[in-house]
Amino acid sequence: MTSPPAPRIAERPAPRRRQADRSADTRRRLLDATVTCLARHGYQGATLAMIVAEAGVSRGAQVHHFGSRQQLMLEAAEDLFRQVYRDLGNVLLALPDPGGRLKQTVTGAWDQLFSGERFLAYQALLTASHQDTELAAALATLLVRVRMQYEPAVDHYFAAAPGAVVKPRTVFVQLACFLHGLAAQSHLAPDPALLRYQLEAYAQLMGSQLRVRKNVSTRPPRAGPLA
């Protein structure tokens, strides 16, 4: 006499992806697609239809998450700065020798923001703001928030060198201007190694005004919405 077959255990369906996760993924795809389209096609060329197609989402999803094209552009710019701040912080904290932080700050800022798609996207917004007063005002407000975020980080990692004639925060404003100017014409440079040389030379100049704080192994204090 054979025993009856064991009852089959019903297979549970795979849990459906949470709505919050799907929503976050859609936002992420739209923000990334906006940066890509800005870098490739400029501000005027980066239409909503193009961004939606690049993101692989519906137009309704775009409207749900971002009420207007300009809102999407500005949130993409803020997200871009947030990513750069986080990535550069990771680079600095990963250095085994704090003495290399000044050079790595210059080259890291170049690599994270000024040498590729991120800079081209930001430059497209900046150029468009010369003819769009509303965009200019929004970008100006964003840059104030960025500065409020970065200045405590400068104080956290660096101090004035003996005999310095300018404050560390001023040095970093000048660094941003230098990197922006270098990036704006980098596509014309005949030798990429020359760009790297200029970065390292500028780091040496900064060393006359800055010193790296020793034994700093923590992140800077949070100081605004970009953190």
Rank of each mutant, 00 (worst) to 15 (best):
Q71M: 12
R16K: 13
Q131A: 15
L226C: 03
A46W: 11
A164Y: 07
P15E: 07
D155A: 11
Q174M: 12
A124N: 03
G89C: 11
N215D: 15
G224H: 06
A138F: 04
A33E: 07
G67W: 08
K103R: 14
K103M: 14
A33R: 01
L188K: 06
D111T: 11
P220V: 12
S129R: 05
A193Q: 10
Q204V: 13
Q112M: 11
G163N: 05
P4C: 02
A94K: 04
E75A: 02
A201F: 06
T36M: 05
R145P: 00
S129T: 01
D191L: 05
A159V: 06
S208T: 09
L194W: 10
R28M: 11
Q204E: 14
R40L: 13
Q19M: 13
A94F: 00
A201T: 02
E134R: 06
S68P: 11
A160I: 02
Q123V: 00
Y122W: 15
L74D: 07
R69M: 03
P190R: 04
V35N: 01
Q185L: 06
E54I: 06
R27F: 02
A164S: 14
P5M: 09
R145H: 11
F114Q: 07
L102Y: 04
L205D: 00
R16E: 07
F158M: 03
G207R: 01
P225D: 14
P152S: 08
A61Q: 12
F178V: 00
Q112H: 09
P220H: 07
S23G: 03
E151H: 08
V173Y: 13
V63I: 13
R82I: 01
G56A: 10
C37R: 04
P192Y: 08
S217D: 14
S23P: 00
A193L: 12
R86W: 01
Q104K: 10
L179P: 00
Y197I: 09
P168M: 10
D79P: 00
G100Q: 15
D79A: 08
P168D: 10
A33M: 10
L126Q: 11
V173H: 09
T34D: 03
L205F: 05
R28S: 15
Y85S: 07
A46T: 08
V106Q: 03
L210Q: 02
A39K: 03
